[in-house]
């Protein structure tokens, strides 16, 4: 098959993963949040309510697509696509196993952050085009948050890049193979040098993927539904599909950087290489579970608190930590 055909198939595979992930995550969100709130979540449609999301997707597809009269027509239609495309792009550099990846980029980490940094443009576009004050406020909040937290997110993972000597996500995973004392996996999360790194990464990536307690851009108790207020039917569906997809990407990135990606040290190498993608997906969904746990536990913070935390705390801390871990890595090696 030609190179162009293979690339097209890879894009289709990523698209399929993204759509499947959306369906799985909506069900997971309802069940996890339900049990966290001592409720049952969906139980009626299908076994334990498993078909509920499928029905909801059908409902979204067949609903009337309302376009309010005052909206900026072109931008209003374009915005869901502008949110959706970077989200799809971000799958390209993720290593699902040592052979399963779309591309093998030397600057894979930077590439994934670049894709994530484009998403708020779509949210800002949706907010402006809706001609609604709540929407505009939501879009503005999304952009402000993203500008503030892009910097600490990038800076926080630099110690890992310095230690590994590469920004290739596959190489970073390979550097975490093996065990300490035959029990403890050689994952970066075990290394005390990376604990502050991990904390900054978690906070910044929750903000970047608009997750509670940092979902100020769609805070329903303050600004109706933020940038999504005027959207209905499948346009709304696209906006939220990429929201779930971003959550998946951020979790997958965390797994790759801190939890050894597709590797599992206690199993023989042949089993791991066969089950690589499965191990990666299980780890990623565990990460998503923790994000939902946070969502079900913490109240939303205020927008000014988030901005202050980003600019005045996280950026200086991550800069200091880069210098410190640079010295440590230099002295050790």
């Amino acid at each position: 098959m030609s190179a162009v055909g293979i690339s097209a198939l890879k894009v289709l595979a990523a698209l399929g993963l993204m759509l499947g992930n959306g369906v799985v995550m909506i069900y997971m969100l309802r069940k996890v949040l339900g049990h966290l709130h001592i409720r049952l979540g969906p139980i009626h449609v299908g076994w334990k309510g498993t078909l509920q999301t499928v029905m909801d997707v059908l409902k979204l597809l067949t609903k009337e697509d309302v376009t309010p009269r005052a909206v900026d027509r072109w931008l209003f239609r374009l915005a869901p696509a502008v949110v959706f495309v970077p989200s799809l792009m971000a799958y390209a550099a993720l290593p699902f196993s040592d052979t399963w990846r779309i591309t093998n980029l030397d600057s894979g980490l930077l590439y994934t952050f670049t894709a994530l940094s484009l998403i708020p443009i779509g949210l800002l576009m949706a907010g402006w085009a809706s001609a609604n004050k709540w929407s505009l406020l939501g879009g503005m909040r999304a952009a402000a948050q993203q500008i503030a937290y892009e910097v600490p997110l990038l800076l926080s993972v630099l110690p890992i890049v310095m230690l590994v000597g590469s920004a290739n996500l596959g190489t970073i995973v390979e550097a975490q193979q093996g065990t300490f004392l035959a029990v403890l996996p050689r994952w970066f999360i075990v290394n005390p040098l990376f604990w502050p790194t991990f904390l900054i990464f978690v906070v910044a990536s929750l903000v970047e993927s608009n997750q509670t307690p940092f979902d100020m851009s769609e805070a329903e108790s303050e600004i109706v539904a933020g940038f999504a207020t005027e959207y209905s039917a499948m346009k709304f569906g696209l906006l939220f599909l990429s929201e779930f997809s971003n959550q998946f990407i951020v979790s997958a990135l965390g797994v790759t950087l801190f939890f050894g990606g597709w590797t599992l040290p206690w199993l023989p190498a042949s089993v791991v290489s066969a089950l690589g993608p499965l191990i990666f997906l299980i780890k990623t969904y565990l990460g998503i579970f923790v994000m939902m746990w946070i969502r079900g536990t913490f109240p939303r913070v205020r927008i000014d608190q988030v901005m202050q935390l980003g600019w005045q705390r996280l950026i200086p801390i991550s800069l200091v930590w880069i210098v410190f871990s640079g010295i440590v890595i230099k002295v050790w090696s």
């Binding site: 800002l124 402006w128 500008i147 892009e150």
Partner: peptide
């Protein structure tokens, strides 16, 4: 990352 992700967002932000 710099021009589209930050500079353009900043321009849009200021205009709005």
């Amino acid at each position: 990352l710099v021009y589209a992700g930050s500079v353009a967002v900043l321009i849009l932000f200021t205009i709005m």
